[in-house]
């Protein structure tokens, strides 16, 4: 296996008395989709936010391509090549679809502090190319506020790709979508991850997506990793069945 793109080593995080993340380690390689699952309150979100810089670890370390991310803010981590999508879509509602992507490109190319140029003229073609990749080209001129939910998710993906990332972080990427849309979005993501050789870490509650799309799965409960492996290994792990999957439902509450 090639050197990991993302490496988390013995992450620790406490909130008051609660040990939210306790000694969690994992790696994601280029071209790999790694799913992080577990019950509500298991520490997934905390773990996720330690990786993206939203939270600071009390112990352990996160490395991107061997470089430590300790103490870096989310925007600095982004500059190192980490793209993100959010559980609840976060886009710029007062801009068009194209302008949303242009904004990310403007930031990536460090054009932000120019005061006299017209923003809508910057990187227009590039933005449209990215939108085409996620199948949003024909909606480029629409206000982002009127998009259907599934399209917002695709727009987020395009924004996340604007800085040509090495690592893609997706927090519950398919929450709130219909089954077919979920599969479509994750197929799209998987294709891009393979083609660009990205590493992708995602959390998810839909077991169809997890078992169908992830190359590897890690399972958390009460702040600790309790299982790691392929879909089959995780599905048949008794501990995972007990705390998370339940009595045999293969498809969870998405």
């Amino acid at each position: 296996m090639s050197a990991p793109v993302l490496e988390a080593v013995s992450l620790e995080k406490r909130f008051g008395g609660v040990h939210a993340v306790a000694g969690v380690s994992f790696r994601v390689a280029a071209g790999e989709m790694l799913a992080l699952i577990g019950p509500n309150g298991a520490g997934k979100s905390t773990c996720f936010n330690l990786v993206n810089g939203q939270l600071r670890a009390d112990g352990g370390e996160v490395r991107l391509g061997g470089q430590s991310l300790a103490g870096l803010r989310p925007r600095a981590i982004w500059r190192l090549g980490v793209g993100r999508t959010f559980q609840i879509t976060a886009t710029f509602a007062s801009m068009t679809v194209r302008e949303n992507v242009q904004m990310a490109l403007i930031s990536h190319r460090r054009m932000l502090w120019s005061f006299l140029a017209r923003a809508t003229d910057q990187f227009r073609a590039e933005a449209e190319a990215l939108l085409a990749q996620v199948g949003m080209a024909e909606q480029a001129g629409r206000p982002c506020g009127v998009l259907a939910y599934g399209d917002l998710k695709r727009l987020e993906l395009a924004i996340a790709l604007a800085n040509d990332p090495k690592l893609l972080l997706m927090d519950e990427p398919t929450a709130g979508m219909a089954p077919k849309e979920r599969t479509a979005l994750m197929d799209l993501t998987r294709g891009i991850v393979r083609a660009r050789g990205l590493a992708c870490l995602f959390t998810e509650h839909d077991m169809d997506v997890v078992f169908g799309q992830a190359d590897r799965i890690i399972v958390m409960n009460r702040g600790r990793l309790i299982a790691e492996g392929t879909a089959d290994q995780v599905r048949n792990d008794p501990a995972v069945r007990e705390v998370y999957l339940g009595s045999g439902a293969t498809s969870g509450g998405h």
Binding site: R75, W78, Q102, M103, I106, L112, S114, F115, A119
Partner: peptide
């Protein structure tokens, strides 16, 4: 209407997303 002005609006619309694209 400049990149600066758009960045400003981006920060207003979604601080989370703005920081996540390096603003």
């Amino acid at each position: 209407f400049s990149p600066f002005g758009y960045g400003l609006r981006a920060a207003r619309d979604s601080e989370l997303r703005a920081e996540a694209i390096g603003l």
